[in-house]
């Protein structure tokens, strides 16, 4: 552990005090999320993230793709404050990451619903933990359940919902939080192709309404291109960033229409080339 890493770890404990000392070096604008010179190792042999340098503009939808085991989840967990920063700095709206910050919402690959809560109760769970006003959060949860296509299923327990429906509830729960930064780790990774497309559409429409900053991890290149403003490609371990490609497809986008769009396929093959290089290295 270097001295710099030590500083960042300390800062995690005291977010208020740590913020400014870290920003002095590169001074990213407040409101941005940034990662600089990040390195993360598990033990001495696994180098999961190598010299990662990324900026996320407010309202930007950024996907990170890369071969399995390259360190995507690690980067996301560092942003979420679930892992201590070892080396480098991460700044989230001007302060270091910390698990439980209210300006960050995290969505896992598994739906992670509570089986003893109904769909509506699950959807408002996060807001409830964060002490949001009861009437507002309940109304919002119902609204979101309708938006994700679960009207009429509000009082169902998760056991009575299909896999895709459960992930819809998880989406509703994430959007029920008013965090400006959303971290998503392969939220649709375990779904079949068709359900995945439906949920991508749902995610896009939810996101278009509010334009929050999204960091979206996926191993599905098509999904990354469909959803994002930028696609970041990581190499195999040690996970370095080997491409950062802006996706100039107009919005609003429709997932099904994009499949027929030649522009989309052009971008796809361009990003695929980069990813192939990454896989080979």
């Amino acid at each position: 552990m270097s001295g710099q890493g030590q500083l960042a770890t300390d800062a995690t404990v005291k977010p208020e005090a740590g913020g400014h000392t870290q920003l002095a070096a590169g001074a990213p604008e407040l409101g941005n999320v940034s990662i600089r010179d990040l390195n993360h190792r598990f033990g001495s042999s696994v180098h999961a993230a190598a010299d990662v340098f990324l900026n996320f503009a407010p309202g930007e939808f950024v996907s990170i793709v890369g071969p399995s085991g390259c360190g995507k989840t690690t980067v996301l967990n560092l942003l979420a404050g679930l892992l201590p920063v070892q080396e480098g700095t991460i700044s989230i709206f001007g302060s270091p990451p910390k698990a439980g910050r209210h300006d960050v919402a995290y969505m896992l690959a598994r739906d992670c619903l509570f089986p003893w809560l109904t769909a509506a109760q699950n959807a408002e769970f996060g807001a409830r933990i964060r002490h949001a006003d009861r009437h507002k959060r309940q109304a919002r949860a119902r609204e979101l359940l309708e938006a994700v296509g679960l009207k009429g299923f509000e009082d169902n327990y998760p056991k009575a919902l299909s896999h895709g429906m459960r992930q819809r509830v998880a989406l509703a729960r994430t959007f029920c939080l008013d965090s400006p930064l959303l971290l998503m780790d392969e939220p649709f990774g375990a779904l079949d192709a068709q359900t995945k497309m439906q949920l991508e559409d749902v995610l896009l429409s939810l996101w278009m309404k509010e334009r929050r900053t999204v960091v979206f991890i996926t191993h599905d290149l098509a999904e990354a291109i469909t959803l994002s403003d930028r696609v970041v490609v990581m190499s195999a371990r040690p996970g370095k960033i080997i491409a950062d490609i802006r996706i100039e497809l107009p919005r609003p986008r429709s997932v099904t229409d994009l499949q027929k769009d030649p522009e989309y396929h052009k971008i796809y093959s361009k990003v695929w080339e980069k990813l192939e290089v990454g896989l080979r290295s």
Binding site: A80, H102, V104, L108, R110, C112, I129, R130
Partner: peptide, 14 residues
């Protein structure tokens, strides 16, 4: 207790 449930609660600041 499911570890994912605990992780989620941590990120929510429970």
């Amino acid at each position: 207790t499911n570890a994912d449930h605990l992780t989620l609660s941590r990120t929510l600041g429970a």
